[in-house]
């Protein structure tokens, strides 16, 4: 597992460097208390993380939707993040503090697909923090609802 994680991190770093070089396709910046930060990650790098799919309702849509992405904790562990909370910022400068414990208590994912279709910047994409709302009663609360950051752009680990 450790070896695998290192491999992924190296992969991320490599890709990150490449992305920096090309100045394209960067969809997530991670800053703050991480190993060798800050990190700029493109879609490919993020999709190399183990994909997870959850089915849940959301407060801004009707019906149950299927979301595919990676576990936030997988990303943070790969980046060796040390901190108590993460400041998530959206493209429209929406800013929210999320306790680190959320990612360990619940399988919070960063989704890049909804119902099998890639999320795009003009429709809550490219990244959307999704909580497994239907699996945990306590998540059905407006105090969790505001942590569903769509059009996610930056994570700052503190």
């Amino acid at each position: 597992m450790q070896i695998h994680a290192h491999a992924v991190v190296s992969g991320l770093m490599l890709l990150g460097t490449m992305a920096m070089a090309e100045q394209t396709d960067i969809i997530l910046d991670v800053t703050g208390q991480i190993e060798d930060g800050p990190a700029a990650l493109d879609r490919e790098a993020l999709q190399s993380l183990p994909p997870v799919t959850i089915e849940t309702t959301t407060v801004v849509t009707d019906n149950v939707h299927s979301f595919t992405g990676f576990l936030m904790r997988d990303l943070l562990e790969d980046l060796d993040a040390q901190g108590t909370h993460v400041v998530a910022t959206a493209l429209n400068d929406y800013v929210v503090d999320i306790p680190m414990s959320d990612f360990y208590d619940y399988g919070v994912i960063v989704a890049y697909e909804m119902n099998g279709v890639a999320l795009t910047r003009d429709d809550k994409g490219p990244l959307w923090i999704v909580y497994p709302r239907d699996d945990h009663k306590e998540l059905q609360d407006i105090r969790y609802d505001y942590r569903w950051v769509w059009q996610l752009d930056r994570l700052d680990v503190r």
Binding site: V59, V60, T61, D62, N92, R121, D122, D123, K124, W150
Partner: peptide, 19 residues
Amino acid sequence: ALRRDLLIGRFNLLNDGPQ
């Protein structure tokens, strides 16, 4: 393009069920 997309995103949101 970013500002346009963000506005389109907002309209998409407004057109989603509850909104």
